[in-house]
Design a protein around this nucleic acid. Sequence first.
RNA 1: GCCCUGGUAGUGUAGUGGCCCAUCAUGUGGCCCUGUCGAGGCCACGACUCGGGUUCAAAUCCCGGCCGGGGCGCCA
Length: 442
Amino acid sequence: MPSTMKRIRSTDAVELENGDHCKLAGWLQEVRNLGGIAFLKVRDRYGVFQVVVLKKELGDDFDHIVNIPRESVITVEGKKQETDQTELGYEILPISIRIDSEAHKPLPLGVVDKVDAEMGTRFDNRFLDLRKEEKRTIFELRETLLRGLRDFFAKENFIEINTPKIAAAGAEGGATLFKVDYYGRDAYLAQSPQLYKQMLMGAGFERVYEIAPAYRAEDFDTIRHTSEFVSLDFEMSFIDSSEDVMDMTGRMVEHSLGYVVEHSSNMLEKLGVEIEIPKDPIKRIPHHECLEILEDLGKTWDEEPDVDTEGEKMLGLYVKENFDTEFFFITDFPSKLKQNTFYAMRKDDEPSLTTYFDLEYKGQELVSGGQREHRYEVLTGQMKDLGLELESFEHYLKSFKYGMPTHGGIGLGLDRFVQQMLDLENIREGILFPRDTSRLEP
RNA sequence: GCCCUGGUAGUGUAGUGGCCCAUCAUGUGGCCCUGUCGAGGCCACGACUCGGGUUCAAAUCCCGGCCGGGGCGCCA
């Protein structure tokens, strides 16, 4: 019978003396039955340990043990025996084996099968999919990245905030919002914390950041969009220009990626990923120069020239080849392209341009940000030009009437950050339970 | 929203008018095997997304439904 001995991790058993008794537990990954001897491969979060059972010692129990279905949860108590024939350098000679949870057969998705599964099958059985080490490693690394980001913001004296995810109106005009029933009233899931961040600048918080879900009811079907994603937003006051925001953004990326490399190099090795930490300052290329570069590269446009998806990829390769970096800012977005972003500040000396920028990472948009318009009259003017009803923004606009500092900030797609950092083919790989146009469960 | 593409055993696939009561692998079940680690050997089990149509004949062609994958627009 299992004793009251405490269960230890597979990797902690490495430290035990040869012959020590211990208790380990995990999922029975596979049984290698050779007839008179069988090897059980048991997996916990940290590794895979081996249990050796002999038929001549166990008799009928042997047949029972080797027939435990794969992926059942078992607890093994026994003696540690060192060996150079297993990955962890030891194996367990069991005294008792307890089945805590017998797995049904067949598995809807093999954990260590030699055949791949399609994404649909994998996400329908995500808990099984995540039993694979490389899938779980993605989320260990995602957590390290988050820790690195929070570490940066703490050092820079930002306050982590939480703003409402249900609101009466959308933050930005034109965006597609999910409608919900709020005690009989129409309400919408937040697609950005933008307006709240700005109101907190008016409240005197000076530096805030939020890491929270955002919702977009757009009909996209791509490898870089989901309907629910985690948005990292920061906002800072008393800036001189959007240069201050870009500088902060660059150092944020530099610090967080450096943090991942410093704390999780073993995990990166498991995935075979090498991370480039951007050199500060990150290269800035004005939007109009991007278009010139693209033209030189032979790109043509059917309509108004812009940095479209193809252009982003081309520019990503261009900076990689010419400047040996995976990062660059596209700056000075034309006002025409940012028309819906009513809070974007236009350049005083060149109103056809905004202070807005994107940060591109490996040829994909990662960050969007800039200096916000803090002058009440200018802001409301831009909103009127867009045809917005000022009344529905009453609470937002009020915060601009009684002392609003200059400010700016960014929004970063955390899932995209993970995707690009780890070279994941699809953004969904870095999301535990993704939501897209067709998937609402699990 | 527009465009492309797909749906065959639990899983992944081959087959694109008759050679198919459907290939291979993996899995599952059984038997053999005392050092396996992509274990090996032998045997067995298990499938054409749904509805309609064309045809002597449909997994295969056509129409529609349902469910996926991807591109663009847009965006993080």
